[in-house]
Design a protein around this nucleic acid. Structure first.
Lengths: 210, 210
DNA sequence: AGACTAAACGGACCGCAGTCCGTTTAATAT
DNA sequence: ATATTAAACGGACTGCGGTCCGTTTAGTCT
């Protein structure tokens, strides 16, 4: 298994070619500031690339040069909170972080993910499909690996890669948001169902061999 | 539980207000013919509403009047095969249709669904989110119910509605297509993983109490 | 300071889905 | 036949994401 680099995302945060031209840096600041303002007052879906360019006092081409696409921009806006989330389940305290049993970490992971989507829903949704290019590296791949590892840790006897993919699909932001906003399902109920699902999937020994 | 009407979809197939004006009927035929031709030669993603209107020799407004949206059009193009699929799992022979045990029907359902997505993938994808209006009634709701019923039949002790939703998410066309086309997973492997998943979820008695 | 160059810039431009509204027309009533 | 009218029509229009390419400029080299 190859090593997983921490936080593979960061479309436009640090100096990309190691030295960034001053005007580029200035415009990046302007753009991020303007983007946060627009999201603040219009919501994520109210942010259009034209409006962003105008608000930042910058040409439209510059916006796309920097972020590649709208999804890439959203990914950038999310990168801090995503990184924090990643850090918590990779290095944080149990039961989310290492130190707890795999099943418990899985349960905690789902619960936290649900809360995360509740909080950043709009952005997450808008960031979902960043164009494959030299931009973006969506965080989803990391959860997938994470879930797969935890399944293996629990001695999952099956197809851990695909099962991890299936479990990830279950936490899809669009599904979660539809359930919560459209069907008035509570986050607690979602978390309970997730707990039930993963428990059955790992085939909890306490249940199977009482 | 309220009755489920068979084939709630059919945006523009039959005479809608029971008597359809002759020019409307004529244009509907033209549009469907042109749409099928375009999909044939350009694929689903190559079909644009402008091109369709032109090819059919019809104004753009007419296209939208008829189908409501691009997704609505795709839904219409799919309606025959969708109806056939529905008929098979609702009224067809076991193990897909009634007569088999719930778990076996679930397994068969997933396998068939996977094959279906392999075949009509592009269209299914393009049809995914039809606008909520007087158009469309996406088939997804029906599968959800179907899965829920089968879970209950197996004596599922949990939150059958949400679990059915989670299992549906697992069969999401976008996920399946990404897996097959992007990661070269075979349909067989997908079906096997689905089988594994639902077996664990219903908590197969043969496994739990050997 | 002046020349050079690669990078950054910006806005006109494109194709697309979807809307609006003035015009045409099929069916019906007289 | 003619008048009426509700429905269907069609294409100009909007707003969007994304691209292209000629122009400007920051940093460097002499």
């Amino acid at each position: 298994m190859t090593a997983v680099s921490f936080i593979p995302l960061r479309p436009g945060l640090g100096p990309e070619p190691l030295t960034e031209r001053s005007d580029a840096a200035r415009n990046r600041e302007r753009l991020l500031k303007a983007a946060r303002e627009l999201v603040e007052e219009c919501g994520a879906e109210g942010l259009t690339m034209d409006r962003l360019a105008e608000q930042a006092g910058v040409g439209k081409g510059t916006v796309f040069r920097r972020f590649g696409s709208r999804a890439g921009l959203m990914l950038t806006l999310l990168s801090e909170s995503e990184a924090a989330f990643q850090a918590r389940f990779m290095f944080g305290p149990p039961p989310l972080g290492p130190g707890a049993r795999g099943l418990d970490r899985l349960i905690a992971f789902g619960a936290e993910r649900i809360l995360y989507v509740m909080e950043y829903g709009e952005l997450v949704l808008a960031a979902e499909n960043a164009a494959r290019g030299r931009f973006e590296a969506p965080p989803a791949a990391l959860w997938h690996r994470h879930i797969e590892v935890l399944l293996r840790e629990e001695g999952f006897d099956g197809d851990p890669w695909l099962m991890a993919s299936a479990l990830s699909a279950t936490l899809d932001p669009e599904r979660l948001l539809t359930l919560v906003k459209g069907h008035h399902i509570t986050a607690d109920r979602l978390a309970a169902s997730w707990r039930d699902l993963v428990t059955r999937v790992v085939g909890d020994g306490r249940l199977r061999h009482p």
